[in-house]
């Protein structure tokens, strides 16, 4: 286990390094800069001053080393979009908001998806199956921002049950969580159904059945457990996205989360923020991935941690 963790750590550091270099180069390759030339170009002197002020006149290598050096010491700089706070402060302010909505969406989506998927598989080719498949299709075919817009029109404008958006009360959670949960729920249901059907046909389930185990025992001990493997593979990468927020949902429901910064940082050429977001997602992702790998060994003892490393 210790050897495995050490290996992972080295891997993660390698990944961090490559990701940071790639993003750093890409973001500096975008034409223009963070200065404001919205109406008329700045004077050369003003632009030069601006670049000097933020160290943007230095060679890229130097800028990179400086930023990463500061980042290692916990200083992620000041966001150009919000110069009265630090990048860390901004993330500390907005991320919990996104994480709470994403986390709740996951808590809703997973059990519901598992339930629907299991039901559909158990009642294959009946109306239960068709109904869940239809719901799943809806979740994957209609973009969540379209669903979000209709939720607002229905529950806020027509029925007046909920506010159109905002933040601070429990009512503000309902629609964003629902809109956000639909897709992962659909995905979970679909993969659960597929995996269960597949595992049910496998040799060892047949063996188990031959051994005289009850359907229920088979379902829990063999089928569900094995069905979890592909599900983990599919769902795990969704988690970092879900808990770091999405601009589509947050902008429609006026949720003051982190999601919009994934887009506005690029639009505003907010270099410190782009780098910080990238590092944040990388950290979240590596944690999720680590947990997933460990979970693999739990649900499928035949996969041992060393295996995935060597």
């Amino acid at each position: 286990m210790a050897r495995y963790l050490f290996g992972r750590l080295v891997g993660v550091l390698v990944v961090f390094f490559i990701v940071s270099v790639v993003i750093f180069l890409l973001m500096h390759a975008i034409p223009g800069g963070p200065y404001n030339e919205d109406k008329v170009p700045l004077s050369a002197e003003a632009k030069a001053n601006y670049m000097r002020k933020y160290g943007l006149d230095r060679p890229l290598v130097e800028q990179y080393l400086l930023y990463m050096g500061n980042a290692l010491r916990g200083d992620f700089g000041v966001p150009f979009q919000s110069p009265t706070e630090t990048v860390s402060g901004l993330i500390a302010r907005t991320w919990p908001v996104s994480a709470s909505i994403g986390g709740l969406a996951l808590l809703v989506a997973l059990p519901l998806g598992l339930l629907l998927g299991t039901l559909a598989a158990a009642r294959q080719n009946t109306w239960v199956d068709y109904l869940t498949s239809a719901t799943a299709t809806l979740g994957i075919t209609v973009p969540n921002f379209v669903i979000a817009v209709w939720l607002v029109l229905l529950f806020a404008v027509q029925l007046k049950w909920l506010p159109t958006g905002g933040w601070g009360q429990w009512q503000h959670y309902v629609m964003p969580v629902a809109a956000l949960a639909l897709a992962p729920m659909a995905l979970t249901a679909r993969y659960t159904r597929t995996s269960i059907l597949e595992v049910s046909r496998s040799d060892y389930v047949r063996t188990a059945r031959a051994k005289g185990l009850s359907d229920r025992q088979i379902m829990v001990r063999h089928v569900l457990r094995n069905a979890m493997i592909p599900l983990l593979t599919i769902l795990a990468p969704q988690i970092p996205n879900l808990i770091t927020g999405t601009i589509f949902i947050e902008s429609i429901f006026r949720v003051p989360g982190l999601g919009k910064f994934f887009v506005t940082s690029i639009l505003a050429r907010d270099y410190p923020m782009i780098m910080a977001l990238m590092l944040l997602v990388a950290v979240v992702w590596s944690l999720v991935y680590l947990v997933t790998d460990i979970l693999y060994t739990v649900v499928d003892p035949r996969v041992r941690l060393e295996k995935s490393r060597t």
Binding site: V12, V15, V19, L26, F262, I266, L277, V281, W285
Partner: peptide
């Protein structure tokens, strides 16, 4: 081989997809 491919996969997984698409 596995090790390197998995690191490559991780690099691309670790980047927020929407952000990467927007950057590109």
């Amino acid at each position: 081989v596995d090790y390197f491919i998995m690191r490559l996969v991780e690099v691309f997984t670790a980047v927020p997809a929407l952000m990467l698409a927007l950057l590109l």
